[in-house]
């Protein structure tokens, strides 16, 4: 559908070369070959060194760099990931994302066709999230000095008038809610990583969550103490981070954590613990106990929250630690991730 609305234009060059990042004529050639056209909006069209706009009220500001390998994966590519990632970071702050910057670091030799596919995904993701890309940059590095394409996006969002998100507000009894199935993104990437390719229909869950969190903030305001998207390091890392800063204990129940069977099977096969596998399209919320039931009900009505579940609660016991009840009824500590998760060797 998107491809139809943004057909690949005819380029007079097949691949990106060092000169396209020089700032000179070739850079203009690259930008005018369709980049400006695809990302078109009033602010970008001013073509200044930076963007001019007015904002009123408290703002959230966030930045992230995207170095994913491979850059194309089931369910998306580095383009939508770079938009959704920063949009979601802003949403997790309790803000409504408005404007993004977009910077490319391109390894020379990247085919224009691939670059175009990334641009199209960027456009689509920005439209879906209702954000504008208002400033940007393009650099090209020599062959071998990058890995096809790196992207940085930064973003600004207006804090939702009802948002009171701060981990200091968390108290024992608050409920821990996850908005969807865990470990999907990480396993989708692993399934296409060189040397590991395995057949699966698992797709990355990369998606913008800002409309979902805005709706929840409209409904529950200060009952929501905490939002965080468990990207790198997975659910275990988010819970450990919040446990460390609040000094409360966090109890979760393995039986209640939603995970797609196929993803769980792949984790078994690869020797990975799904609690530590990366996600892109879900978030953890910590919500006042009295509001948690209604919060979950509203979340489940949203397309991004169909599999949402209450997975545990904050407790005074074992301060600073995350403890999980296993499926068979045992208990264990969930520690922060150390190093990188590596597949088993025997």
């Amino acid at each position: 559908m998107i491809i139809q609305s943004c057909p690949i234009p005819k380029f007079n060059f097949e691949m990106i070369s060092l000169g396209h990042g020089s700032g000179g004529q070739l850079t203009q050639q690259l930008l005018k070959s369709g980049v400006f056209e695809v990302l078109k909006n009033d602010i970008l069209d001013q073509q200044h060194d930076g963007a001019f706009f007015r904002l009123t009220g408290a703002v959230a500001f966030s930045t992230d760099s995207y170095v994913i390998s491979p850059i194309f994966f089931p369910g998306g590519n580095i383009g939508d990931l770079a938009v959704n990632g920063t949009v979601n970071d802003l949403a997790m702050c309790g803000s409504c994302p408005k404007y993004l910057s977009l910077a490319f670091i391109i390894e020379e030799g990247l085919l224009m066709e691939k670059f175009w596919q990334v641009l199209v995904r960027i456009k689509e993701a920005a439209e879906r999230a209702n954000v504008q890309i208002v400033t940007g940059d393009t650099k090209v590095v020599e062959k071998g000095k990058g890995d096809q394409l790196f992207i940085n996006t930064s973003g600004i969002g207006l804090i939702h008038p009802k948002a009171q998100i701060h981990h200091n507000h968390i108290v024992p009894g608050d409920q821990i809610i996850i908005s969807g199935n865990i470990a999907t993104h990480g396993i989708a990437i692993m399934s296409v990583r060189k040397g590991l390719e395995f057949e699966t229909t698992i797709q990355s869950d990369t998606i913008n969550l800002n409309h979902t969190t805005a709706k929840l903030l409209d409904g529950f305001g200060n009952a929501i103490k905490f939002f965080r998207d468990p990207t790198r390091g997975g659910l275990a890392s988010v819970l450990n981070e919040v446990a460390a800063v609040t000094h409360w204990g966090y109890d979760i129940d393995q039986q209640l954590i939603p995970i797609e069977e196929q993803v769980e099977g792949a984790c078994e096969l690869l020797g990975l613990d799904p609690l530590y596998v990366a996600n892109e399209g879900i978030f953890v919320a910590i919500v006042q106990k009295e509001a948690a039931g209604d919060f979950l009900e509203l979340l489940r009505l949203d397309a991004n929250g169909r599999n949402a579940a209450i997975i545990g609660a904050v407790t005074c016991e074992h301060p600073g630690k995350v403890v999980m009840k296993s499926r068979i009824g045992g208990r264990r500590i969930v520690t922060p991730l150390t190093g990188e998760q590596l597949p088993r060797i025997c």
Binding site: G271, E317, V323, R331, R332, I333, T335, R344
Partner: peptide, 19 residues
């Protein structure tokens, strides 16, 4: 190692007493 006994105890320390 992901199979080492010390790593197992470190990662999953079993009882709160041990914690």
């Amino acid at each position: 190692s992901s199979e080492g006994a010390c790593a197992a105890y470190y990662h999953y320390a079993t009882t709160l007493k041990q914690v």
